[in-house]
Nucleic acid binder design. Structure first.
Length: 267
DNA sequence: ATGGTTGAGAATCAA
């Protein structure tokens, strides 16, 4: 089973890129973030010619929004709101894996957190920390239901020193501050998650999934961050076959600022 | 220290 996650930065403007990604990577499930559109205006039939006939769309106008395209039937589809807001940031599905057992796939778009890394001064940063705290509490409870979860998405935190281009220079930059990393670590510990990508790529090796649009040459300057993640529960760890960031997608014409991340589970 | 770009959707707001 192949699962892909991608912050698409507008699904409508990047319809062609989504189709190309499906063709080239052939994931069984594709989780999208920042679709930036209401459900009714989601591109109709996206991926259907390639066999992606099952979908869960959880959109909103102009901002945020997540979706899951699948070529496997969906046993269950759910969405949830967080922090008492109506933001569309979480959707999940249950599918039957190759071993005949169900698997629950969670797709998240964690708040970016604004510019100032101080919850007193910046309510967006406070929202981000609260969101992560609620996630940790929710998964600590949810783990009682099943031990076969996959969590993917744009978590907007780069936890390791090698997840940013300069640990020292980003310590006070939102996405890599200690307080955020600690909050994300509490989510990570809430279900004894396994970082699928770092399972294959050692922590010593710099690895990014996002590069700013503002660089003159994103690839040359390479000032990236690893904001997009795939985690699995311990029961799935032995099934991990491969995981990677598909960096080439960041180099496509008029791209999203995020690259997709893919995991292969031998189930 | 600063400013750099993109997308949504109509002036800025969010990232």
């Amino acid at each position: 089973m192949r699962i892909c996650t991608w912050n698409v930065n507008s699904v409508r403007i990047h319809v062609g890129h989504v189709e190309r990604l499906l063709e080239e990577q052939q994931p069984d499930l594709l989780c999208l973030q920042e679709i930036k559109v209401v459900n009714e205006l989601f591109p109709s039939g996206l991926g259907e010619a390639l066999g992606y006939n099952h979908r869960l769309i959880h959109g909103q106008k102009a901002y945020h929004g997540v979706a899951i395209l699948s070529r496997l039937p969906l046993i269950a589809s759910e969405t949830r709101h967080w922090c008492g807001k109506e933001d569309a940031r979480h959707a999940w599905v249950t599918v039957e894996a190759g071993d005949g057992k169900p698997l629950e796939l969670h797709n998240f778009y964690v708040p970016s957190g604004g510019d100032v890394p101080d919850p007193e001064e910046n309510e967006k940063f406070a929202h981000k920390l609260q969101f992560l705290d609620e996630m940790a509490a929710w998964f600590a409870e949810r783990r009682k239901k099943s031990n076969r979860f996959v969590l993917v998405g744009d978590l907007n935190v780069a936890p390791l020193e090698s997840d940013v281009w300069s640990h020292k220079q980003l310590l006070k930059v939102v996405s890599h501050t200690p307080v955020e990393v600690e909050a994300l670590t509490r989510v990570y510990d809430s279900h004894d998650w396994v970082d699928a990508v770092r399972n294959f790529i050692p922590a010593e090796q710099p690895l990014f999934s996002w590069w700013s649009y503002r660089a003159r040459d994103w690839e040359l300057s390479d000032r990236g961050r690893r904001l997009d993640h795939i985690w699995v529960t311990p029961a799935l760890k032995s099934a991990l076959g491969a995981a990677e960031v598909v960096k080439a997608v960041r180099g496509w014409e008029k791209p999203s600022d995020h690259a997709p991340v893919i995991v292969e589970l031998d189930l």
